[in-house]
Simulated assay, not measured.
Amino acid sequence: MFLPLSASLASSPVAMAGNRTMHALQYDTYGGGPAGLKHVDVPVPSPKKDEVLLKMEATSLNPVDWKMQKGMLRPLFPRKFPYIPGEVIGVGSEVKDFKAGDKVVAFLNHLTGGGLAEFAVAKESLTVRRPPEVSAAEGAGLPVAGLTAHQALTQSAGIKLDGSGKETNILITAASGGVGHYAVQLAKLGNTHVTATCGARNIEFVKSLGADEVLDYKTPDGAALKSPSGRKYDAVIHCASAMPWSTFEPNLSSNGKVIDITPGPRALLTFALGKLTFSKKQLVPLLLIAKKENLDFLVELVKEGKLKTVIDSSIPSAKLKKLGPRVLMVMLLGRSLLNHRGI
């Protein structure tokens, strides 16, 4: 989904709809990576009543985006070709909480497109104000990666981010990636001991985020997910690719959970078997459900300096065709591309 964005509300949006065109990126077939994206000019469509029209400043690209383009989510997404990741569908006559010129962070709907255009729309119910202390680039990572980390920790793992809960041992895999680097920071707001895995080059970076123990995933102990201090994990925020349940199970506490943010068929089967056998150790698939109050909470944390979005580079979207397929898995701006540190 070309989902998260930072933007400003467009002025005179109703007059713009249908009378102007916008620049966007479009693909009309599965596959092709960056080379499959075409620069096009399309009309700015008419608004819906509960949406805000946004002038794009920054948007992020997540793994589901390249999966959609590659055809891994067919026949559900995209619903039709050509697909414009950033198609504007309007401004709402019933929007009350925002006015022209407001800076915002919003969650876009991948059913209708995303943020690779000059303008995009978002539901008012999934749009929050962006204070001056939070840059467009910092805000752009929050609606998918940040919200996924927040939901995994608070709802699935039961961590209280005010530190009032009981001490909990957490493992975060791929901790230097998009979701992982937020998860480490958020977990440390709670009463947690965080063990993290990442590549050797990112060990010091993950430590700087607050992780108590960091494992190189390519070492024997890292591959086995063994805590250096011998701890058993009450919860695992699994941000890496597929890993067998047999690797997790011996490292879990008696009621340990593995929260899988990208569950595949094997993970879903493990989840079902756990339910059928009444196992106390569970694999929990996570489906992100975006909520305005949670997005607002994350923006406030960034404003207060308690949470940060780490960005490697910014690349103009005009150069998108020159980028490799790996870049399509990271962060994208309306006019620039943000690349999270590799896992």
Rank of each mutant, 00 (worst) to 15 (best):
K188N: 06
K160S: 14
G163Q: 04
L171E: 00
K166Y: 02
S164E: 02
G178K: 04
Y182G: 08
D162V: 08
G180I: 14
T173E: 01
L161P: 04
T173M: 00
H181F: 15
T173F: 04
T173N: 00
H181G: 13
T173W: 05
V179M: 14
G180K: 14
Y182F: 15
I159L: 10
Q185D: 14
E167W: 00
G163D: 11
Y182V: 11
H181Y: 12
V184K: 06
G163C: 07
L186H: 11
A183M: 10
A174K: 08
A174N: 04
K188A: 04
N169T: 14
N169M: 00
I172K: 09
Q185M: 09
L186V: 07
I159T: 03
I159Y: 05
D162C: 09
K166W: 01
G163H: 07
L161V: 11
V179E: 07
G177T: 10
Y182D: 07
T168W: 03
Q185F: 12
E167H: 15
V184A: 12
G177V: 06
L189W: 13
G180D: 14
L189D: 11
D162N: 15
A174R: 08
G180R: 13
G165W: 01
I172P: 00
L186S: 11
D162A: 10
A183N: 06
I159Q: 04
L171R: 01
E167N: 10
K166L: 03
V179N: 09
L171K: 04
G178R: 06
V179Y: 12
I159A: 01
A175D: 05
E167F: 00
T173A: 02
K188E: 03
L189K: 15
D162E: 10
L189C: 12
A183F: 11
D162T: 07
I170T: 02
K188P: 03
L161C: 12
E167Q: 15
L186W: 12
G180N: 12
Q185G: 12
K160C: 06
A175Y: 05
K160E: 02
E167A: 14
A175G: 11
G165I: 06
A174G: 13
I159N: 04
G163T: 08
I170Y: 05
A187N: 07
S176P: 02
K160V: 03
Y182L: 14
T168N: 01
I170S: 03
Y182P: 02
K160A: 12
I172W: 04
H181S: 15
N169R: 14
V179P: 05
I172G: 05
V184N: 09
T173D: 01
G177N: 07
G177E: 04
V184F: 13
T168R: 07
Q185V: 09
I170M: 06
N169G: 01
T168A: 05
T173H: 03
I170P: 03
Y182E: 11
D162R: 10
A175I: 00
Q185I: 09
G165Q: 02
I170W: 01
S164I: 00
I170K: 02
L171G: 00
H181A: 15
V179G: 08
V179A: 09
L161Q: 13
A187G: 14
G165A: 02
L186Q: 13
S176H: 07
S176R: 09
G180M: 15
K188T: 01
T168L: 03
G178W: 02
L161K: 14
A183H: 09
G180Q: 15
T173I: 01
L161M: 12
H181N: 15
I159F: 04
A187L: 06
